[in-house]
Design a binder for these strands. Structure first.
Lengths: 222, 222
DNA sequence: CGCCTCAGAATTGTCGACAATGTTACTCAA
DNA sequence: TTGAGTAACATTGTCGACAATTCTGAGGCG
């Protein structure tokens, strides 16, 4: 009983599954992917599988050498730094743009989101995973508010996959919930005041801070 | 007599060919791509072709609807603006990073490149096309000098394809050669002085200026 | 003991055929 | 005349088999 979701394709479904499998570490970093093995595992032929892998290649989740197979990328600290640097540039710009382009109603909605986050942080205090989702939500909202669709897709669909991969696979210790929320609020204030310059600076600092704690965390764990 | 370049693959070759075909406008914007037609045209089966198309999809050069075919994206002004905004953020960051990470010998090499460009600009004065290649060279050098490999690939391999597509397909009129060269030189000075803050600002202004002239040009031609 | 050579095996790349879906054009009734 | 319904067609998606290339390891030579 194959669950054929209409309007989609085996290769597309498979790509999504593989993305989450890699992000969750189900397929470990550095693993060489065997086409035949994966194909039989997911019950598809090698055709769709190969197309799905081409998609992963576009996301730079795997590296491919012709005639020699693909392997899942392995995340080292240098690459984490690279990704966060790119993120700093892009999300800083997104914050700046959001000041110009975000609709008043979207700003109100973002305000509500922050209040929700606040209640969660100060309400119960064992919500590490939730915190991550909240953080993601806020950043995605800002990206969306920038009005730059390509920017939104580039960050939200491509780079965030890698960041999630880091977060999931390095059991991390973000005692940063209240601090991050506070920074979010100040970024929001800048957006509400339509102060693009300030919003960009604050966002960049926020991401730098996130990187430092994450790096510190990894340094302790490895 | 098929020219099988060893160490590569039909799908990869085909992807490159299709990229240049799209960039050069050989396959017009908005065209619906027929798999069978393209496959027979390039003398390959539909398998490699489909994989190549997956690659194009990753570059966002084509859009795909399941079971309904892919079509080449069509470039409008809004998207041009989006791309240049992203470029501004990323290359600004690249310039900042280059100040920290660029080796002295690479800086010397960049200096030589600029002198070469200067001689070309003031030597013969009918070199519009050359100017574009020079501009590209400079920016790629800075990106490479940032030391951020992912940033370099993201701009150099992905986004620049789209920018080239604009440049090629809108017969443009860059009487900006000397101005751009001057800006390049000032950016170089900042890099040489290891002044990241200034280099980022100058690079961002430079790209904003390039966008304005390009936009102005398109506005006149359409 | 180390290194090179060279089959054999395993894996990747390519192809043609079949199945599933979307599109189009025609018929017929309101 | 126009609109819905439907049947034929065209296109995309999937599969299994074959070809080409790389990897592995056993054997021999220095």
């Amino acid at each position: 009983m194959v669950a054929h979701i209409s309007g989609t394709t085996l290769a597309d479904n498979l790509r999504e599954k593989l993305v989450t499998a890699i992000i969750d570490g189900e397929i470990p970093q550095g693993t060489k992917i065997s086409e035949t093995a994966l194909a039989s595992r997911y019950g598809v032929s090698r055709g769709p599988l190969r197309e799905a892998i081409r998609g992963l290649e576009g996301l730079r989740l795997v590296q491919r050498r012709p005639h020699a197979g693909v392997r899942v990328i392995s995340l080292d600290c240098a690459e984490l730094r690279e990704i966060f640097t790119i993120r700093e540039a892009l999300e800083g710009m997104a914050a700046r743009l959001a000041c110009e382009n975000m609709l008043d109603e979207d700003i109100c909605s973002l305000d509500e989101l922050l209040r929700l986050h606040e209640s969660e942080v100060y309400g119960s205090d064992g919500e590490l995973y939730f915190k991550q989702q909240d953080d993601l939500d806020f950043h995605l909202r800002v990206l969306q508010g920038s009005g730059n669709i390509r920017l939104y897709k580039l960050m939200g669909e491509d780079l965030y996959q890698l960041i999630l991969m880091y977060r999931r696979q390095s059991r991390l210790c973000p005692a940063r919930a209240t601090l991050a929320l506070d920074e979010h609020k100040r970024i929001f204030d800048a957006i509400q005041a339509r102060d693009g310059e300030l919003a960009e600076i604050l966002m960049r600092r926020h991401i730098q801070g996130a990187y430092l704690t994450l790096q510190h965390c990894i340094g302790e764990n490895t």
